[in-house]
Design a protein around this nucleic acid. Structure first.
Lengths: 212, 212
DNA sequence: GTCTATACATAGATAGAC
DNA sequence: GTCTATCTATGTATAGAC
């Protein structure tokens, strides 16, 4: 009975309604993609809230409404599932060129806000997945280290002064701290403040770091 | 044979040499304290470097040169062992009163440095144990949240301006970020800089936050 | 006080039925 | 494609011998 098995498949993976409003059985490929997506979404949610170690394959499968074995079938290992949870970054926007009429300090601050500021309100899940595990999962630690160093280097190239590398690093770390405080530690003062308020409050601080 | 068992005990727990240079058998209480200390030291080292989840009772026991069962005997559970690794804070020095001739901004910065600055070079292990697990071990998260909130409140009381609570929180978070970057993430720019350099670089930033 | 042995739970991963 | 059953490893915790 094809319709019967189709109903089962639908229950397992959610709605089977297509854009034309007609419910029909999925192809193998479609169903495969659908499952993968569901699993990946569940994985991201759990990795993000509990970190790598405390997120189990079994819990991911349960949250996705599939069998644990299926998770392995699709992703091969927990490590790989984690990697895939980090991937597919939604358009990691490169730094735009500076407005011509900005001072160096304003420019650096603008660059930081462009990179982080827009994220203060709504951070991509990939980032939060990485941040949550950055202190305890070695692979995540290394990735964060590289990201921060890269961002600091980019800033350094636009700064002056003997200690510009140090100041650039401090600026990057400051933004990291704010994101941690707001989205991971969830300090109530930070979650209660609007992103614009936070940016306004931290701006003088960043501009101070920007100047030699 | 008392001397024989004494030798064994010594090997298990290190030297039995006393201040008078004579090796003699320990009392039960002495040996108990000695074991506890060894276990606690090993636990702190592991919790600090690998975090709560990846630190196993077995690894702690191995590092301390004792049996896993003994760890349980002394501390009852892993949670409790972790708590004890956080305790015994070496003199959590209260904030000293401000020098009379400091501006409010300088005062706040001085207060932060007194609290954190001295730690930039040499952080108590207890603190690092807590920080390493603060993103993944709920009990640690909560403790950090409380600590930060408390410190921010203390600063807020000495500040002015509508957004002083927010700015105080940002100041505290900034210091946290630096400590994380230097001692946990171990960003090479930060580990390579002297504490004084870092303090000099971040001072204008903190003073900017201190002013309404 | 300390260690051996083990109970008990839960993890990641694999093999094969459907 | 998906699920059941299971293997294997490892963890915390306990009971009892020494």
């Amino acid at each position: 009975m094809r319709s019967g098995s189709s109903v089962n498949a639908c229950r397992a993976k959610g709605s089977c309604l297509y854009s034309d409003g007609v419910s029909r059985p999925m192809t193998r490929t479609e169903r495969r993609r659908h499952s993968q997506t569901r699993i990946l979404t569940a994985a991201r949610t759990l990795f993000q809230s509990k970190g790598y170690d405390r997120t189990t394959i079994r819990a991911v499968a349960a949250a996705a409404g599939v069998d644990p074995g299926l998770v392995m079938q699709h992703f091969g290992s927990k490590k790989e599932l984690f990697r895939r949870s980090l991937a597919d970054d939604p358009a990691q926007a490169p730094l735009a060129d500076a407005e011509a009429d900005l001072s160096p300090a304003e420019h650096l601050t603008a660059a930081l806000f462009e990179q982080y500021g827009m994220k203060l309100g709504d951070i991509p899940e990939n980032t939060l997945v990485l941040l949550r595990s950055m202190l305890t999962y070695p692979e995540a630690t290394e990735k964060v280290r590289r990201n921060l160093a890269e961002q600091a280097t980019r800033l350094t190239s636009e700064m002056t002064g003997d200690d510009r590398e140090l100041r650039a690093t401090l600026a990057v770390i400051t933004m990291l701290g704010i994101i941690l405080g707001r989205h991971v530690l969830e300090l109530d003062v930070l979650t209660a403040s609007a992103p614009e308020e936070i940016m306004d409050a931290i701006r003088p601080c960043l501009e101070a770091l920007a100047e030699a």
